[in-house]
Design a protein around this nucleic acid. Structure first.
Lengths: 228, 228
DNA sequence: CGTTGAGTTCAACACTTGTTGAATTCCTTG
DNA sequence: CAAGGAATTCAACAAGTGTTGAACTCAACG
């Protein structure tokens, strides 16, 4: 990791692998601190090189992010495979097992966490994620599973996927963060499955719940302005 | 909104309400851009005042955030009321209706969105949210509902609450973002209810799913280093 | 061995940020 | 109307940022 750091200038002897070290440091930094929270100077220090070397290889910060986030696999293909494999009644649990299988490996998770963190940072980034998720990922899953209310099912599913991702890997709420993948698959599987193929527009809770119910809390319609 | 902007210096005539305008601009800015993405200069410009006035009133950026985020109600009390009101079999739907009732009002939602955005920005903020959510909010809900696996139920619930919050108000994925509250209550109610009081550790999917299943995807154990 | 080019560092620029102290204008109280 | 204090702005500082160009050192190739 650390060669002699005291050299004044010029090329270091031997094969340094500095480019890969910069990429690894960038992945880690973006995942931990988000895009804005990551400085090129800190990435460079973590990689043991000069900040200018980062620009030498990647041009600018945005390109460093793009190169560091380079996803190993095409999500579209993976989804096609998942959907085509087993019978649709198992798709929910299969999805969970697959996702945890990938994300429980830190080096595979880092790019995704970094992207999610960045997506939450401001409105513009959120829009990019919305469009990508809509067209590239979610549509394929739900289309392959059932017919009615596809769009709503898609977004319900997305909400639980995001919630799982955030709670397990970002907020790290225990015991979910350390739970065995199979525990999660069993606990969340029915939720995924119901969003995919179950009933979602009837009052189908466990006890016999009344369907109509008045709002239990009255809204306070106060406004902030103080101009009387 | 805009008084005469060309005055050179000194106090402006009349009651300006600048302090409230700064707070409103800060809430909006923190909600849209997160903590780091919000600059005091932009808040000041949106409020039509000089940046120094922000420091005059709030001292520093952190305190501006705290004052702007000042929540209108005590979450602990609200939860106690929700839990005590009806029978436990309805708690899931009641929670959803209540949350949407509050968050669908933009001025009530802004502080929460700002806090969530900030919580996602880096690890340190995530830790703060984790501790607050654990001790102040989630524990009370689940404790009042059922006995077994309380901690796991709590985090499962949190994942779906966060997912809903993020998808509806931050990523704004349609049709969930614009769906009628009752639609959401009916669609997500069973999920909430099952996490609260339903079975969560058995293979209880809709079709007869086999309980044990080998991993459907083989892990690629490649590492990043290129040193051959 | 000389040349060329890639790897690497140094030093600096232009910019933005949070923050501060002094100066100016108005309101309020006597 | 005089005085004190609050509201407001101006101008500046120190720190940190992404980025750039020049300089230096090594490896490879003829």
């Amino acid at each position: 990791m650390s060669r002699e750091a005291g050299r004044r200038s010029g090329r270091r002897p031997g094969t340094s692998g500095a480019r890969e070290q910069i990429l690894a440091a960038a992945r880690s930094a973006f995942a931990d601190n988000g895009y804005d929270g990551t400085t090129i100077r800190r990435v460079a220090r973590a990689a043991g090189v000069d900040p200018a070397l980062v620009h030498h290889y990647f041009g600018n910060k945005r390109q460093l992010f793009v190169d560091a986030m380079d996803l190993p696999a095409n999500p579209a293909e993976i989804i096609e495979g998942l959907v085509a494999t087993g019978d649709p009644e198992d798709l929910g649990e299969r999805m969970i097992r697959f996702m945890l299988n990938v994300w429980d490996q830190e080096e595979d998770r880092a790019p995704l966490v970094a992207i999610v963190r960045t997506a939450m940072s401001d409105d513009q980034a959120a829009t990019m994620v919305r469009e990508f998720a809509t067209t590239e990922i979610l549509g394929r899953i739900v289309k392959a599973a059932r017919g009615d209310n596809q769009d709503l099912r898609m977004t319900l599913l997305a909400s639980q996927v995001f919630g799982l991702l955030i709670m397990r890997y970002i907020i790290k709420l225990e015991p979910l963060a350390s739970a065995h993948p199979e525990t999660v698959a069993l606990a969340m599987g029915p939720t995924f499955q119901r969003y995919l193929t179950g009933p979602i527009s009837q009052a189908s809770s466990i006890g016999a719940s009344r369907t109509e119910r008045s709002a239990p809390v009255e809204r306070s319609s106060t406004n902030i302005s103080s101009d009387s």
